[in-house]
């Protein structure tokens, strides 16, 4: 190594600028607004359709929907459940696809690297931005759901899946747990997205690829003949967030999901590094 080692304190300015960049981007703001809108739409639709749906009988809708009428809390859960299969992954895919490929596409990547910012640091900062997005997205959905639900249906004690009642506050705590768990799951998806983003200079390509991967993973998870493959699928344990709504909560049931997410994070961050650190930056 011929270069002179300069010990500098790693400043947080790069990270701060990245976060600002993500936050002020119109498409990110619009995406977040779309995420927040879904629970509101659900709540309004349930409110408007009330006489009909009660007449039709119970248990007809997807999970948590039947309980919305009696407790606004479940708007948040229904929202998270509905968005988990497509909207949330798309949001992360947008963010992750943009991370490196977006800079490359705009021709700003080489300037970033001449600043001088090390490539590992660049990846780390980009990933940190994705992680923040991954935790923020489910929280936004849940918050919007709680607000819409409280406004239209009111609160009250929350019924767990096991048929016990917990206070609304305890319910909110469970909901926070659900958001954190899904945040970890989406963080793993973001790691795959970061890797895809280093492969191309077209952010859209990385975004679409990641969305397709997610959908494919969900579809493969539905096919019983492929059960040998299921433990390796990224999305296999996402629905396990329901474990947090049982009484008593068995945290060990969340373990497979967290381990899978951890494995994906390690492997794909390594892959992103292997690709990015050795790549010629031409744009």
């Amino acid at each position: 190594m011929s270069q002179v080692k300069v010990r500098r304190r790693v400043s947080s300015r790069f990270l701060a600028s990245e976060v600002r960049l993500i936050a002020v981007r119109r498409r990110n703001q619009a995406g977040l607004a779309a995420l927040a809108a879904v629970p509101v739409v659900i709540a309004v639709a349930m409110k408007v359709a009330t006489p009909d749906s009660t007449g039709r009988g119970q248990g007809g809708g997807p999970d948590f929907f039947s309980q919305i009428l009696s407790n606004g809390f479940f708007v948040a859960l229904a929202g998270v459940g509905v968005e988990l299969t497509l909207f949330l992954p798309i949001a992360i895919a947008m963010l992750a696809g943009d991370a490196v490929a977006g800079e490359a596409n705009q021709g700003t990547l080489r300037y970033l690297l001449t600043v001088p910012v090390g490539r590992i640091r660049l990846l780390a900062v980009k990933y940190a931005g994705i992680v923040m997005g991954a935790f923020l997205a489910p929280l936004v959905v849940a918050t919007s759901g709680i607000l819409a639900g409280l406004l239209l249906f009111g609160g009250g004690d929350v019924t767990t899946l096991s048929g016990t009642s917990i206070s609304f506050g305890a319910g909110l705590l469970r909901l926070l747990g659900v958001c954190l768990y899904l945040g970890v799951c989406l963080t793993a998806l973001g790691a795959v997205g970061l890797f895809l983003s280093t492969l191309t200079e077209q952010p859209m390509g990385a975004t679409i690829a990641l969305t397709m991967l997610t959908v494919a993973s969900f579809v493969l998870g539905q096919i019983p003949q492929l059960d040998w493959l299921h433990p390796y699928l990224l999305t296999q344990h996402w629905q396990d967030f329901g474990e947090l709504l049982r009484d008593p909560v068995s945290l060990s049931a969340l373990q497979p999901g967290l381990l899978t997410a951890g494995a994906y994070i390690v492997v794909f961050l390594c892959a992103a590094w292997a690709r990015f650190a050795g790549r010629d930056i031409t744009s």
Partner: peptide, 11 residues
């Protein structure tokens, strides 16, 4: 663990 009180709204 074995005490069950039906939550409100339960049929």
């Amino acid at each position: 663990q074995f005490v069950f009180t039906p939550p409100a709204g339960t049929k």
